[in-house]
Simulated scan of single mutants.
Amino acid sequence: MVAPLEFWFEFGSTYSYVGALRIEEECRAAGVPLVWKPFLLGPLFTAQLGIKDSPFNANPVRGRYMWRDLERLCAKHGLPWRRPSVFPRGTVLASRVACAGEHQPWLGDFIRAVFRANFAEDRDISQSVVIAELLRGLGVEAEPVLAAAVTEESKARLRASTDQAAALGIFGAPNCVTRGELFFGQDRIADAIAWALDDGRA
């Protein structure tokens, strides 16, 4: 029996960008159901590391490696890439929209559009006007979705998702979770899909 695969991602995460643009196609090809799981890294970094910034900014040596690594990865996978002029950008609104759009047919396309806007077009995804343009570009009426995203229900869902990420032992992004196993990093997608397909593992 094939298990669903949860893809835990953060819109401000560079490696989530690479994973998010690949994972739906790879899951579809393998016949593995995909569940999008947006969450916020900021609260986890504060609780786990005591910082209020990206570890890539806090550690410039690590940051320099990451930016060059992203160039290589995007070239490898044929993904558009432009280093954002602001990093990390605020992702709360986009994440709330993703929560509000759960089970909507446009959700995957919206997620990819937000990532491309941030990491290929250098657009400010924290702004509602940008999110509205992305939704309209998908043929989605933006105003009702944005209104739903700022309700207490959507806010609570994003907080609960972030709390669940912490409870799962998530410490970065992206992550795949399937059959009770956590696979950290966009380079573990194939391993996670294989695990989802095989229920005979110990």
Results as ranks from 00 to 15, higher is better:
D198Q: 14
I189P: 01
F183W: 02
Q186G: 11
G169L: 07
A166C: 00
G180V: 03
L168V: 01
A167W: 00
I189Q: 08
C176R: 00
W195D: 10
G172T: 00
G169H: 05
V177P: 01
D191E: 14
Q186T: 05
D199I: 10
L182E: 10
C176V: 00
I189M: 13
F184R: 07
L182R: 11
N175G: 10
D187V: 06
F183Y: 09
A166Y: 10
L168N: 04
D198N: 15
F184Q: 09
D199Y: 07
W195Y: 15
C176P: 00
N175Q: 10
P174D: 06
A192G: 08
G172W: 03
G185Y: 02
D191Q: 15
I193R: 02
R188T: 13
N175T: 12
L197A: 10
G180F: 04
F184N: 06
A166V: 00
P174Q: 06
I170T: 01
G180I: 04
N175D: 14
L168R: 11
G185K: 05
L197W: 07
W195P: 02
I193M: 06
A173P: 02
T178N: 07
D191M: 15
F184V: 08
V177F: 02
L168K: 05
L197F: 09
W195V: 11
L168W: 15
G172A: 11
A196I: 03
G180T: 07
A194D: 07
G169Y: 06
F184C: 09
A167K: 12
N175V: 13
A196R: 01
A190S: 14
R179I: 09
E181D: 12
I170R: 02
F183V: 04
A173L: 06
L197H: 04
I193G: 01
I189T: 11
W195F: 14
F184S: 11
D187W: 09
R179T: 08
A173S: 14
L197N: 04
F171S: 03
T178C: 10
C176N: 12
G169I: 04
D187G: 08
G169V: 03
A196V: 05
F183P: 04
G180C: 09
A194W: 05
D191K: 11
A173V: 03
V177G: 01
G180P: 00
D198M: 13
